[in-house]
Simulated assay, not measured.
Amino acid sequence: MLKRFIAVDWGTTRLRAYCCEFSAQGEVQLLASAAGPGVKKVQTSFPATLSAVIAPFIQQFGQLPVLMAGQISSSIGWFETDYLNCPVSPQAIKPAMVSVKVDELTLHITPGLRYQSADGQDDTMRGEELQLLGLLKRYPHYQQGQHLICLPGTHCKWVILDYGKVHWFKTAITGELFDIVIQHSILLPPLAALPTDDTSGFLEGCTRSLADSPESLVHSLFSVRTKQLFTQCNAATARNYLSGLLIGADIKTIMQSIETASCQNKPVVLIGTGQLQQAYANALAAAGKSSTLIAEQDVALAGFGFIAADQTNLV
């Protein structure tokens, strides 16, 4: 077993790097962490960005193998790896990894997952499969029965685990659409993109999207602007109203999907972090659904740990 390794979860909007060590009992322990820009936000090059982020790890512990997951292995990333077809066990990503030597670094990169519906519609994920693997290893009871998993982010993933296999999943570009609207539309002023502690308006947006009326999201979105024009709604409140509209619409679609019918009586497993995870929990509650919150970092490290364990070729 490797004693130490570097794990890199490199998504569309952010890079998260972890320097890890196995304990004597085989548990993954976090030695240090660092962050950097996502695949779409890299200003220099992928090699330079990675080197800068993990340099403190290497200075302290020497050269270590680097395990990478996420959009870095996609067509918009650094090295493109294959997709594994669903249904599939997340454990299958381990033997399908690709190893690449870059200067003095040895990179071990995970594949993605692909789901194709009965009518031929495709969906993909990269990075979330690593968290699903960690979920199954850290919480083995999710290997039994069917469970609906939600992984909020730039591209929110909804997944059905069926006895430990990824049976179905669907992507909503909720986070990316939110960023596009606040940065490139007339619905909100530029300052609305700034973080705020004001959470008013979110539930109102959720309630509107979750209503039984057949209103389309492309129609309700314009109410973000009209609320500011006629109801004394400030930009911060409108920003949260927009978030509620988008997340509520996402949840309503999933809850009405025939694919998720078998999981309706179980809590939704929410893998995430911070305000976004809590926002989905609040929106689910508004829809009458309970949720179980699980920390993204915990399952990510568990997934990387499973990949690193007993891998004598990771040098």
Rank of each mutant, 00 (worst) to 15 (best):
D122W: 06
D123P: 12
T124F: 10
M125A: 00
M125L: 05
R126T: 02
G127I: 09
E128D: 09
L130Q: 13
Q131E: 14
L132R: 03
L133P: 12
L133A: 06
L133V: 05
L133G: 07
L133E: 07
L135F: 00
L135P: 02
K137H: 03
K137I: 09
K137L: 06
Y139C: 02
Y139P: 05
P140D: 01
H141K: 02
Q143F: 02
Q143K: 01
G145P: 02
Q146R: 09
Q146E: 14
H147V: 04
H147N: 10
C150T: 02
L151A: 12
T154S: 03
H155R: 01
K157W: 06
K157R: 12
W158S: 01
V159S: 08
I160P: 03
I160A: 07
L161K: 02
L161G: 01
D162Q: 07
D162M: 04
Y163L: 04
G164T: 00
G164H: 00
G164S: 00
K165C: 02
V166L: 05
H167Q: 12
W168I: 04
W168A: 00
F169M: 07
T171Q: 03
A172K: 05
A172N: 14
A172T: 13
I173C: 02
I173Y: 05
T174I: 11
G175F: 09
D179K: 14
I180E: 07
V181I: 15
I182W: 06
I182P: 02
I182L: 12
H184R: 12
L187C: 04
L188S: 07
P189M: 05
P190V: 10
L191P: 06
L191H: 12
A193K: 13
P195W: 00
P195Q: 03
T196R: 02
T196F: 07
D197P: 05
D197M: 07
D198I: 10
D198R: 11
G201Y: 08
G201P: 08
F202T: 00
G205S: 11
C206V: 12
T207C: 09
L210E: 02
L210N: 07
A211D: 11
D212R: 12
P214V: 12
E215S: 15
S216N: 14
L217N: 05
H219D: 15
H219S: 15
S220F: 09
L221G: 05
F222C: 01
F222P: 04
F222K: 02
F222S: 00
S223R: 13
S223I: 08
T226D: 04
T226G: 03
K227S: 15
K227N: 15
K227G: 14
L229W: 01
L229R: 07
L229M: 08
Q232D: 15
C233H: 13
C233P: 11
C233A: 13
A235K: 04
T237E: 02
A238H: 04
R239N: 15
R239T: 15
L242Y: 09
S243T: 05
G244W: 03
L246K: 00
L246M: 00
I247M: 00
D250A: 00
I251W: 03
K252R: 11
T253R: 11
I254L: 07
Q256F: 03
S257M: 09
I258G: 02
